[in-house]
């Protein structure tokens, strides 16, 4: 990495995430050289050694572009989110976790104490002395701290102001490459930034819109899990009774999953205009059920084994309710 004081500064951070977003960025192959050629990478824990105090020492607003992935699960995540917000001109919520909570956000179904106890005290954990992490601890060298878990995981924009949203679990590499291209063009004065709040690196339509499967009339007499049936390779999955979330999900992935023979589980988040992802799917699935009889409707719905997981796998923290009751009561 060349250090050139004149190049705009770039940062990337991971909060509560799996690391897949970082891999997706590296997956843009030689485009990553454009990042290096055009930016001075000042902070990117997965790729380089940098300390929080280095970031703290930077001038406010001195980082041009920060890609922030991961949800806000503990007070360290929250601190760094606020710090990077202060130091960055453009803060991008990068990937599903930062946008809407994603899989880490599913922990919002449970009381955070239960989460800690599951991690340190279940049958699969070898912890005979019942040792639990302590927030602060005295050692001869002084007091040491570890981050404190928050009662619910929050999305980035529930904590700080966000300039752009880039969805996906993880964002598709071709979309990342396109966004980097755009930023480089902006730097060269050849393009302009979209208005603040724009969703970038994705489409404005739904996964269904990009899906090539044939559609007729959807009349579902039973919902099935995909491993239990022989899937027609040409026909819309929802029409076959396989709960596919494409109808509520933002386009941008070229309908990867239905193209490959699996249902969309919603990793690109709510489509344009959708306020609550689960609510949109409840409407959609209710519409395709071919019955007006309460008992039969109930039987058909038994086929959706875990509606909460089906509708909020990625979007729980970003939904209107944001959490399940056990977690919210403590929040």
């Amino acid at each position: 990495m060349t250090v050139n004081g004149n190049k705009p500064k770039f940062a990337m951070y991971w909060a509560a995430s799996c690391g897949g977003c970082e891999i997706a960025v590296l997956n843009i192959h030689e485009k990553i050289l454009d990042v290096d050629a055009n930016f001075d990478v000042v902070f990117w824990p997965v790729a380089m050694d940098a300390k929080y105090k280095d970031v703290e020492a930077m001038e406010d607003g001195s980082i041009l572009l920060t890609l922030f992935n991961g949800g806000i699960r503990n007070d360290e995540n929250e601190h760094i989110a606020k710090l990077l917000r202060r130091k960055s001109k453009i803060l991008v919520a990068f990937g599903s976790c930062a946008n809407e909570g994603c899989i880490p956000g599913l922990a919002n179904l449970s009381d955070s104490r239960e989460i800690v106890s599951t991690a340190f005290n279940t049958i699969s954990t070898d912890n005979p002395k019942q040792i639990y992490p302590m927030i602060s601890y005295d050692v001869p060298e002084g007091e040491i701290h570890i981050p404190k878990i928050l009662p619910v995981l929050k999305t980035l924009d529930q904590v700080v102001d966000v300039d752009y949203y880039m969805p996906g679990c993880p964002p598709e590499s071709h979309q990342i490459a396109a966004v980097i291209d755009l930023v480089v063009q902006v730097l060269q004065g050849k393009a302009e930034l979209p208005p603040k709040g724009t969703v970038i690196g994705a489409g404005n339509s739904t996964v269904c819109d990009e899906c090539k499967r044939a559609r007729n009339i959807k009349m579902v007499k039973s919902f099935k899990r995909i491993w239990g049936v022989e899937v027609d390779p040409e026909l819309c999955l929802l029409e076959q009774g396989i709960p596919c979330n494409g109808i509520a999900t933002r386009s941008g992935c070229n309908a990867r999953c239905p193209t490959a023979g699996a249902q969309c589980i919603g990793c690109y988040g709510p489509a344009e205009g959708v306020i609550d992802y689960g609510a949109r799917l409840i409407s959609a699935f209710a519409s395709v059920i071919d019955s007006n009889d309460p008992e039969e409707i109930d039987r058909i719905l038994d086929g959706i084994v875990d509606p909460t997981g089906q509708f909020y796998r990625f979007n729980l923290a970003g939904s209107l309710l944001k959490a399940g009751k056990p977690a919210w009561e403590k929040a």
Binding site: S283, F285, A286, N292, I297, I304, D306, P307, L321, G324
Partner: peptide, 23 residues
């Protein structure tokens, strides 16, 4: 015509979802 049946189906699915959320 049949919109109240649609409401009925939504209602059933909504209740199941709330249950999953502990509400």
């Amino acid at each position: 015509l049949e919109q109240n049946y649609k409401a009925l189906r939504r209602f059933h699915l909504l209740r199941r979802t709330l249950k999953g959320l502990g509400v």
